[in-house]
Amino acid sequence: MGAFVAGNAKLAAVNITGSDAILLAHATFGVLATLSAVWVFVETLNAQEQNAQRIRRAAFAVAIFMAAAWIVGGYWYLHFYPVERIIILKGPWPFAHKLFMETKEHLVLMTLILSFYLPIATRDQLHASAAARRMVLSVAMLIVLTGLTIEGAGAVIDHGVKVALLRPSLTGRAK
């Protein structure tokens, strides 16, 4: 990593790798999908003929953002995660992979399916059908809850790498 001097302070230059960029894009798309699901939920609570098109667009955004999170995250998982998995398993938090990553990587597929279903459910006349509204509200809430769970699991996995790298035995640093 390079360094530059600013005044009297020596600062490390920012070094963002391709792996970092992909991982951050994955998390960002996931957050955008979750926020879009919240948007669908709130709009549906006040469903009228006037906001029907907006609800459908928001639902479509959920599907697009979730698909992007899955594709980008999948690429990172297949190409970059194997190294991090080894680090996690040698560290003090092996459950970050064994429990949280294993659950996350399969739970995300459920959220993906729900995200693909949301635009279909919003095609009903929500302002005229309580049943359709309840379905959309339920699916949007499931996406929000599973989305937040997945984001939380991602944080645990990230911390699993961090605590492993901080161990002197793994990095080879003297005590």
């Binding site: 469903a47 009228q48 459920m110 399916i113 729900l114 279903y117 279909i120 459910a121 095609r123 009903d124 006349q125 302002h127 005229a128 059908s129 309580a130 049943a131 359709a132 379905m135 699916v139």
Partner: peptide
């Protein structure tokens, strides 16, 4: 909100059940 229908659309019902089955 206006008077409410009590059924789901065809696709909404079919794909809703499909989503549940796929999750399991």
């Amino acid at each position: 909100m206006t008077t409410d229908a009590v059924i789901l659309g065809r696709s909404s019902a079919g794909f809703g059940m499909a989503a549940g089955i796929t999750a399991l």
